[in-house]
Simulated assay, not measured.
Amino acid sequence: MKMLDLGDVRLHYRVDGPDTGAPVVFANSLGTDLRLWDLVLPFLPDGLRIIRYDKRGHGLSSCPQSPYAMGALVTDAEKLLDHLEVRDCVFVGLSIGGMIAQGLAVKRLDMIRAMVLSNTAAKIGTPDLWADRIDSVRAGGIESLADAVMDRWFSKDFRALPELELWRNMLTQQNDEGYMGCSAAISGTDFFTTTAGLRLPTLGIAGAEDGSTPPDMVRETVDLIPGSQFHIIRKAGHLPCVEQPEEYGAILTRFLKEVGHV
């Protein structure tokens, strides 16, 4: 575990694997930290340089005062990868992490040779929806949203398992200010025009029971990029890397091989 001081924020990040390995960067969803990917990593090929980080206001990173702009989140990722001298990575982003992937690909295509847009979209929700959620967190903390978030995040079968509490706890232990800040960033983001101009290998992944970014929403965004692929994972909601890690890892591994990254 390491910390990078960017001035207005300090980012917690972790690098696993050899320095000479092909870099794969993972960006998390709203309300989760870098442990989101723990279950998937054992199903990926050996020898990769795995880079994970907590976005501002989440996990062990510092928490600037909200609101945040999506441009700041993209710049955070850019500065981290510059610090790590990363070029030609495969960038895997889930939900807001997928928005960061789109923004970074537009800004620094030298950094990203291919990307995975998982359970995300060029635009998620409406300003009114996000304003309501921000108001709810301001009034009652993340706890006030937690049960509804679990319904959107996970399939019905998973919600009956004791492991659900792990993810509910992860959500509620995030910083309220960080959650509100990143919610504001999502609210202000519409990447339809810029993402439609991208030309790089892209894989879209959706969960069949995703209540936050349903499969049709993910497909609509992925289809903006010519030659892209799309895959639906059954029996999974917004976090298929948690519910179906073996299948998620197999899909990701196949894509890494197809783009010559392993």
Rank of each mutant, 00 (worst) to 15 (best):
G57K: 06
H261T: 01
H58G: 09
Q244H: 05
R35G: 14
K156I: 12
R10G: 05
E220H: 13
A160C: 11
E163L: 13
N169Q: 14
E243I: 00
G140K: 01
E246K: 14
G98C: 02
V24P: 03
A105H: 01
D110Y: 07
I232A: 07
F26C: 06
V106I: 09
M217L: 15
A236F: 00
V222T: 03
A196T: 07
P240S: 07
R152T: 08
L104D: 01
L256A: 04
L73G: 06
D190I: 14
G59S: 04
K55M: 15
G7H: 08
F91K: 07
R52S: 09
I186F: 04
F230Y: 05
G7F: 07
G207Y: 01
L239T: 09
A101G: 06
T172S: 09
I233F: 03
M170I: 13
Q102H: 06
D157W: 07
D176P: 10
D151V: 14
D38A: 11
G141Y: 08
V262L: 11
A236I: 02
G7R: 06
A77C: 13
N175T: 10
P240D: 03
D176A: 10
F230E: 00
D16K: 11
I186Q: 01
G7E: 04
P214F: 13
R254Q: 12
V24F: 02
G260K: 01
L34S: 08
T195C: 14
A139C: 10
T195K: 09
W37Y: 14
P67K: 05
E78S: 12
L4H: 11
A131G: 15
Y248W: 11
A185F: 04
I134F: 02
V116R: 04
E243F: 01
A206C: 02
A185L: 04
S228W: 04
L239Y: 09
V74H: 03
V149Y: 09
A196Y: 10
Y68S: 05
V222R: 02
A185V: 05
P226I: 02
K156R: 15
S62D: 11
L36G: 05
P42G: 09
L129M: 15
G47Q: 09
E246F: 09
P214I: 14
L224Q: 10
A206S: 06
M99D: 01
M217S: 15
R113S: 14
G207S: 06
A72D: 13
H231V: 15
G71A: 12
Q174R: 03
K123D: 08
I225G: 00
S155F: 02
A105W: 01
G98A: 00
H238T: 00
R108Y: 08
Y13H: 04
P127E: 10
I186R: 00
G17A: 03
A114K: 04
D147E: 14
L84N: 09
R113I: 07
G47V: 08
H231S: 10
